[in-house]
Design a protein around this nucleic acid. Structure first.
Length: 157
DNA sequence: GCCAACGTTGGC
DNA sequence: GCCAACGTTGGC
């Protein structure tokens, strides 16, 4: 069994916040809407059930880590790609060769908001993929050391 | 609303 | 397969 891995997953809280996840049925939601191949490949090729997830609020007044979650399924078909009414509809994706997949993500707990500026101020997080200039990936890997440090930071008030 | 960064598209 | 144009992301 492979070692547990860690990820940071961005979500716009207006669409799906850590509270949305906490209040959903069985506190578990399909991570629909990923339309970037690199992010998809992380879900398809690397994620394992039980991997740790930092739930990150993006494109909002206070961007930052807002809670913890975990990967709850293997990657499977993202049905929104075939739904013309969905904002995630992809006319180029074909039924016989679907482009987009997603995993399910399960709520673990809410945390204090660990803001971007605070993360940038941490020498131990300087190498984080999230913090790289111009990074736009909605799913990024987190190293065990980064995960450990972030958990410690989340315990501080 | 601005703008930098970067992924994707499509002509050649 | 190159690369310019374009669209999107996301912090500020």
């Amino acid at each position: 069994m492979p070692a547990r891995q860690y990820w940071l997953m961005k979500s716009e809280p207006e669409e799906c916040s850590i509270d949305t996840l906490a209040q959903s049925v069985s506190q578990c939601l399909p991570w629909t809407g990923v339309r970037n191949y690199q992010a998809r490949n992380f879900m398809r090729d690397a994620m394992q059930v039980g991997d740790g997830v930092l739930f990150y609020h993006s494109s909002c007044p206070q961007p930052g880590v807002a809670g913890l979650a975990e990967v709850a399924s293997a990657a499977y078909l993202d049905a929104t790609q075939f739904d013309p009414a969905s904002p995630y509809f992809d006319a180029r994706s074909q039924r016989e060769a679907p482009r987009w997949l997603h995993v399910d993500v399960r709520f673990v707990r809410k945390t204090r908001l660990l803001g971007l500026a605070e993360m940038r101020a941490q020498p131990g997080l300087a190498g984080m993929t999230l913090l790289r200039p111009g990074n736009r990936l909605s799913i990024t890997p987190v190293t065990p050391a980064e995960w450990q440090l972030i958990l410690e930071l989340l315990e501080r008030t």
